[in-house]
């Protein structure tokens, strides 16, 4: 069950209503209902296979849903290509495996979309790119190639690349799961500073410290359903559902 924020029913960024998705015969997302207000930060957690990545990938149509509605910033996601393009311009995504373009420099990675999607002049795109590269604290790497950077640096470039399109919503799909431990902090710090600026964020992650610090809501998913959704301190201190309790004991135990 979802809990809508009481003071922003007229400023919903994302509405998911009765969404169901199947892979062939496998029912992977079951009756998802979710409302995200502008500026809200949501952390989604759950065991693997619970469908959390699939769900956020439906939001920018990297996956298609078979039943239900998904409305992003007022635009409904259907097979209409125009709508899909419009949504993807406003939604940024950071992937677990960075997916930087290895044949382009860091700067070119960041300016690619603004130039070819928003028809931005090159100088302006580069200025924006440098601004965001400074935000993620690696402006000096601008002319290097992704293959020359460490994992943490690459992920920060990926974040800057998405930000260059100035999206309203940022999706994070396990952004630190592929990083060596010593590099997780630098990426999480970047995400925390991003959160403090007011952008709407949906983050699939196992980093519960990050959730406690930044999230407005924590959602627990299991076997394709949203089991529980609550403010962080209530979620961690007072889990309602048995499965939530079990998951928290496993993940916070060590």
């Amino acid at each position: 069950m979802s809990e809508a924020q009481s003071n922003s029913t007229n400023d919903l960024c994302i509405e998911i209503r009765n969404m169901n998705k199947w892979y062939g015969d496998f029912h992977v997302l079951k009756n998802i209902n979710l409302e995200v207000s502008r500026g809200e930060k949501i952390v989604i957690c759950g065991p693997s296979g619970s469908g959390k990545s699939t769900m956020i990938r439906c939001i920018n149509r990297l996956e298609e849903h078979q039943q239900g509605d998904i409305i992003v910033d007022g635009t409904e996601l259907t097979n209409d290509l125009k709508n899909i393009d419009a949504v993807r311009r406003e939604v940024g995504m950071v992937f677990q495996h960075f997916n930087l373009f290895p044949h382009l420099t860091v700067l070119e990675n960041c300016t690619l979309a603004p130039i070819w999607v928003r028809n931005t002049p090159k100088a302006e795109a580069e200025a924006t790119a440098m601004e965001f590269l400074e935000r993620v604290k690696i402006p000096e790497q601008a002319n290097k190639y992704p293959g020359q950077l460490s994992g943490g640096q690459q992920q920060r470039v990926a974040i800057a690349r998405s930000l260059c399109m100035r999206p309203n919503i940022m999706l994070f799909d396990e952004p630190t799961s592929a990083l060596d431990p010593e590099m997780i902090k630098e990426v999480l710090d970047t995400m925390v500073s991003l959160a403090e600026e007011g952008i709407t964020m949906l983050c699939v992650t196992h980093e519960m410290g990050f959730a406690k610090k930044v999230a407005d809501r924590v959602i627990f998913m299991d076997e394709g359903e949203i089991i529980e959704s609550n403010k962080p301190h209530e979620f961690f201190d007072n889990p309602q559902h048995d499965r939530t309790k079990l998951f928290l004991s496993q993940i916070l135990g060590h």
Binding site: L62, R88, G92, M93, F95, N99, F101, V117
Partner: peptide, 12 residues
Amino acid sequence: GQTEAAQALGLS
């Protein structure tokens, strides 16, 4: 993942 990243950026 390359195609997905490009799609997520809104490229046609």
